[in-house]
């Protein structure tokens, strides 16, 4: 391996190895039960709406690409993200979303792009389908994969995925319905072990 010349600015590609090389002996505060390994991220995905599936998928993918160890735990409605029977049909609803405004409306009249649509509009029959289709299109336009494809991408990037035991039993799911990249169905106590020392996000 060639040594870095003096004054040479080399971007940090350390990722996991750089995090692991932190001198823990000099740290006075223990963190994560004494965990001192590489940086770790745990994403708890608890929602099954289309718009709530993507934040976890995008962050998990970004973290894996930065050399961070990533675990994703799918619980409650979030199980729909890894259920092959449902993950191609996640939906987006306007109902309950007061931030519902459309950039394209600005073309009709300046200012309309910031107009929050009234809640009753979300209850028009078929509106959830229309809103879902629009969101699918916007996501695809950005080159972002569909949910099932995204799971394949995460798997290739080395992200570990887990299903919540209680939700799995409660929803009467069967293993065959889980996306093949899901490593297993684990309990809350198993989750505590794998999340040791991790930065944890609840989505």
């Amino acid at each position: 391996m060639r040594t870095v010349p003096e004054g040479f600015i080399l971007p940090s590609f350390g990722g996991a190895s750089a995090a692991a090389s932190v001198d823990v002996a000099t740290q006075t505060m223990p963190s994560g039960g004494g965990y001192s390994g590489p940086r770790k991220l745990v994403l708890i995905c608890s929602k099954g709406n289309l718009d709530m599936a993507y934040p976890g998928l995008i962050l998990g993918n970004a973290a894996a690409g930065e050399g961070i160890e990533v675990h994703m735990f799918f619980t409650f409605w979030g199980l729909d993200i890894v259920n092959k029977k449902t993950n191609g049909k996640l939906q987006f609803t306007m109902v309950g979303n007061t931030a519902m405004h459309m950039a394209d409306l600005g073309n009709l009249h300046p200012g309309l792009e910031h107009w929050s649509m009234p809640q009753w509009m979300g209850r028009i029959p078929g509106m959830t389908k229309i809103a879902t289709n629009m969101m699918h299109k916007q996501i695809a336009d950005l080159g972002v994969p569909t949910v099932p494809e995204f799971l394949d991408l995460l798997d290739a990037a080395g992200v570990k995925m887990w299903a919540c035991r209680m939700s799995f039993d409660m929803m009467k799911m069967i293993e065959a319905d889980l996306h093949p990249a899901v490593q297993g169905v684990i309990s809350a106590t198993d989750f505590m072990e794998l999340s040791e020392g991790a930065q944890t996000l609840f989505i």
Partner: peptide, 14 residues
């Protein structure tokens, strides 16, 4: 993608 992670370990895209 898996192969890219093997060829360029850590932060492949960067």
């Amino acid at each position: 993608v898996k192969q890219l992670f093997t060829l360029f370990p850590g932060k492949p895209a960067k």
